[in-house]
Design a protein around this nucleic acid. Structure first.
Length: 295
DNA sequence: TTCCAGGTAGCCG
DNA sequence: CGGCTACATGGA
C-alpha cells in the first residue's frame, strides 16, 4: 500500500491510496482523548504541538491546516498510513465470527502512533475513570499548563504540558483539573520522566516489549493495563493486549474464558490473534461499547 | 443513595 | 507470589 500525497492547496494536503480509514473508527474509539468531531464528520485535534483537521471523502484523506512537510513528518506516522490494515483484518477474521462482526463494525479503525509521554499521562488518568471525564481532565490539564499552539476555526488549542512543566508544579496547581487521587501519580511520574528529559521513555519503542513493559511498571499509577495501552498506542507494539473491564467482559462472554482469568485471556490473545492482539483488542473494544447491554 | 468508569497501590496472608 | 480494598470524581 502506497500512500501518495496528491494535491496541495494553501494549507491543505490530500492523501490518496488509503483504504481502511474512517475518522469515527479512529478518533472516537478510546485510544486518544483530544480529538473533537465536527459537524461535517471530520475531526479536529492536536498532536506533537500541531493542530489539524482530518476528513475522509471518496477514498481520500483531507488534512486541513497543515503542510506537506508536516504530513510526512507527523501525520503519516501518526495515522499509521504505511500499514495495510486489510491484511491484518483478514488474518484476525479467520475462524473467528466474533472478530468478523467487530471488524465489520469498525472497519476503518487504525492504531494511532501517539506521543509516548502524552499517552503515559493520559492513561494514568484513564484508570477507574470514564472516557468523557478522561477527556475533560486532559483538556483541563492542557489549558492550564500547556502552551498555546494555534487557533483554528475560532478555537484556541493548547499543547500537552511537558514533563518538565508538570514536574515543577505543586499538587495544588493541578487541583482545578479534578484529577482525583491520580494527581499525585501524575506529578511523581512527571518528575521521573523529567530527570532525563524523557530520553529513556522515548527510547523504549526500540526495546523488546517485555523490557518496555517492565520499565513502564516503574511509574507511579502504571499497572499492567495502562502499560499495555502505552505500548500499543505510542510504541507500535501491536501485540500488547490491554485488559480493561470491557475486554474482560468480551473475553468472558464471547470467547468463553473464565471471568477474571487474566492469564487465560492473555494466553488466548497470544495464541489466536497472531501478533496483533492489540489491534484485535481495539476492534473488540469499539464494537462492544456500542452494544451496551447485549453482552 | 448507590453504582460505575479503558485500574493501581498498599497491605496482608 | 495472589487476593482484598481504598482511592477522587461526576454522571446515571
Amino acid at each position: 500500500m502506497t500512500v501518495i500525497m496528491a494535491k496541495i492547496t494553501d494549507n491543505k494536503v490530500i492523501a490518496n491510496g488509503v483504504a481502511d480509514f474512517h475518522p469515527d473508527h479512529i478518533f472516537d474509539n478510546g485510544q486518544c482523548f483530544r480529538w473533537v468531531r465536527e459537524a461535517d464528520g471530520s475531526y479536529t485535534g492536536t498532536a506533537f504541538r500541531k493542530v489539524v483537521n482530518i476528513n475522509y471523502i471518496d477514498g481520500q484523506i483531507i488534512l486541513e491546516n497543515t503542510s506537506p512537510e508536516d504530513f510526512e513528518k507527523i501525520w503519516r506516522p501518526y495515522l499509521d498510513l504505511d500499514r495495510d490494515y486489510g491484511v491484518i483484518k483478514n488474518l484476525l477474521k479467520e475462524d473467528d465470527p466474533v472478530m468478523e462482526q467487530a471488524i465489520t463494525y469498525g472497519s476503518g479503525m487504525r492504531i494511532l502512533k501517539q506521543d509516548c509521554w502524552e499517552t503515559l499521562i493520559s492513561f494514568i488518568i484513564s484508570q477507574n475513570n470514564n472516557i468523557p471525564r478522561i477527556k475533560k481532565c486532559i483538556e483541563s490539564l492542557c489549558r492550564s499548563h500547556g502552551e498555546l499552539i494555534g487557533e483554528y476555526r475560532g478555537k484556541i488549542y493548547y499543547s500537552f504540558p511537558s514533563p518538565e512543566t508538570l514536574a515543577e508544579l505543586p499538587l495544588s496547581a493541578i487541583d482545578p483539573c479534578r484529577l482525583g487521587y491520580r494527581a499525585g501519580y501524575i506529578l511523581e511520574t512527571a518528575k521521573k520522566v523529567a530527570e532525563d528529559g524523557g530520553i529513556r521513555l522515548a527510547l523504549m519503542e526500540k526495546e523488546e516489549p517485555r523490557e518496555a513493559f517492565e520499565y513502564l511498571l516503574g511509574f507511579s499509577g502504571v499497572g499492567p493495563k495502562v502499560a499495555n495501552c502505552i505500548m500499543l498506542f505510542s510504541m507500535g507494539m501491536y501485540g500488547s493486549f490491554p485488559l480493561d473491564v470491557w475486554i474482560k467482559r468480551v473475553m468472558n462472554r464471547l470467547y468463553h474464558i473464565k471471568k477474571d482469568d487474566i492469564n487465560a485471556m492473555n494466553a488466548y490473545a497470544e495464541q489466536y490473534f497472531k501478533g496483533f492482539g492489540g489491534i484485535a483488542q481495539q476492534y473488540l473494544f469499539y464494537y462492544v461499547r456500542q452494544l451496551d447491554q447485549i453482552i
